[in-house]
Structure formats: C-alpha cells, structure tokens
C-alpha cells in the first residue's frame, strides 16, 4: 500500500523523538541558556519582547490610529489590539518556527558532521523552543487582558492543544523545507518572501468577512486560516473552538507531519552526505 512508507517514516520519527526526549530538552535548555548570555537583562528579555510588542499595538491602535472595524471590534477601547494580538502572536510564532526549522540542518552542520546524534530532533528543538517563547507571550497577553478588563474564559484551556497542533504542523512543513534547504539554500530565501504573502493571505489584521466573497474560498484553502480563527475564537471572542475547525487543524497537521517525516527518512543518507 502506498501509505505504508509514510506511516513507517512517521512512526520512526515519532519514536526517535520520544526515545531522545532528554537530549531534545538539553538542546532546548542550551538554546535558552545561550540566547541572552552576556546581556545585562538576561532571561528578562523573554518577557520584554512580548510586552513591548503588545504595548506598541495597544498604543497605536487604541490611541493613535483608532482603527474602526465592524462593531464587535470597537466595543472595547482595546478591541482591535486584542483582535490583532490574538492573530499576530500565533503567526509570529509559526513563522519563526518555520524559518528556524528550514535552516536548522545548515545552521547546525558543524554539530551534525562531527558527533552522531539523531539529527531529526533538531527540528523539534526549534519548534519546541519557539512554542515556549510563544507560551510566555500568551501569558503576558493574559496579564494585559486582566489589566484592560478583557475577561479570560474557560476556552483558554484549548490553547495547549492548539499550540501542540501548530507545533506538529510547523514541524512537518519545517522538516520538508529543511530537507530541501540542505540541497538548495534558495529555499530559506524563498521562505522569507512566501511568509510575507502567507501573512497577508491570512485574516490576521483583517477579518474574513471583509474580503469579497469571490476571494474568500482562496483563504479557506490556507491551512493556517483555521489556526488563526481558532486563536481568535479563544482569545478574542472567548468562544470554545468549533470542532470542525479543530478537526481540520488536526488533519492538516498530521498530513504535513507525515509528509515531512517521509521526506526526512527518504533523503536521510543523501542529507548527511550533503551537509
């Protein structure tokens, strides 16, 4: 059966990650430990970055520009800021996951060439470490919500699942891109442009309903649209996610994970030769 190979690859990659989970955590720890080493504020930077981002959006969109969107966005003085943060924080994490994974084999070539270790875990080091900073920024966002009086809801409990699915999606797509990037370094350059297009093709700074109906179907082909709308449901509208969207996200993530794992396993030998 033609699915046998991708399924085996997916199984292999998954078991490798589980077996080497300790090493994966070591890598993530090292990533965090070395990122701000030598700076005065050190680990505080993990909090300063998201705080700065949220403050900038809230100042610009609630005082300077006073964006007026359909009525539900303007109910609250910070309405647009909340909407923007609900979409842009996950997107920033997603694009960082992708750009980090895509170049990871080239970035870590020195390590891969010199010591033996299951190099596929590097993909999950990249997505995992971004997922942690993303979680920190979400935490800052909750604090911001409490300050401006945007109540938190029980829907937030869906966030861990959603982040996990997003990691799976980014890891899968990232694996495929990382493999290609070893052979053609143009891929990481192209990704920069593709991410710009993708950002504007996702309803993050606008809502789907604002688009002409003839274009809406295009947005619905964009897998990240479903993630964005779930984040917006949970963080902005305070609604439990729709099972349909959640299932779509899960399906997309698994499919991409299968694809990425298959490519990684298929090109394993050539990959190590080329690095």
């Amino acid at each position: 059966m033609f699915l046998a190979q991708p399924l085996k690859a997916t199984y292999d990659v998954t078991t490798t990650v589980i077996k080497n989970f300790g090493m994966l955590l070591d890598f993530i720890r090292r990533d965090f430990r070395t990122r701000y080493v030598g700076s005065m504020l050190g680990g505080y930077w993990f909090f300063i970055h998201p705080i700065a981002l949220i403050l900038i959006y809230s100042v610009i969109f609630s005082s300077v520009m006073r964006v007026r969107f359909p009525q539900d966005l303007t109910e609250h003085a910070f309405g647009f800021t909340i909407f923007l943060c609900a979409g842009i924080l996950p997107w920033t994490a997603f694009s960082e996951m992708l750009s980090r994974t895509t170049s990871i084999f080239r970035d870590q070539a020195n390590l891969i060439k010199k010591v033996y270790f299951p190099s596929e875990i590097l993909i999950f080091v990249a997505t995992g470490s971004v997922a942690i900073t993303f979680s920190i920024s979400l935490f800052i966002l909750f604090v911001f919500f409490l300050i401006i009086g945007h109540p938190l809801s029980s829907a937030l409990f869906y966030l861990p699942l959603l982040i996990l699915l997003q990691m799976l999606f980014a890891s899968g797509l990232g694996m495929a891109l990382a493999v290609l990037n070893v052979f053609f370094s143009d891929i990481s350059q192209m990704l920069g442009i593709a991410l710009q297009v993708w950002f504007w093709g996702t309803p993050i700074v606008y809502r789907l309903a604002q688009l002409p109906e003839s274009v809406q179907f295009l947005v619905k082909l964009n897998p990240f649209f479903y993630f964005t709308s779930l984040y917006q449901d949970i963080l902005f509208s305070r609604l439990a996610p729709s099972w349909q969207n959640l299932a779509t996200c899960a399906g997309v993530s698994l499919a991409f994970f299968c694809l990425g794992a298959s490519m990684l396993e298929h090109f394993k030998i050539q990959l190590l030769d080329e690095i």
């Binding site: 430990r33 080493v37 020195n110 010199k114 010591v115």
Partner: peptide, 13 residues
C-alpha cells in the same frame, strides 16, 4: 571519537 574535541561547546558557558 577524539576527533572533534569539544563539539557543541558554547564559548559563553
């Protein structure tokens, strides 16, 4: 392998 001693070491740690 005593080939690449100190692979993965970070200068700031």
């Amino acid at each position: 392998a005593l080939l690449e001693l100190g692979t993965g070491f970070h200068p700031d740690l």
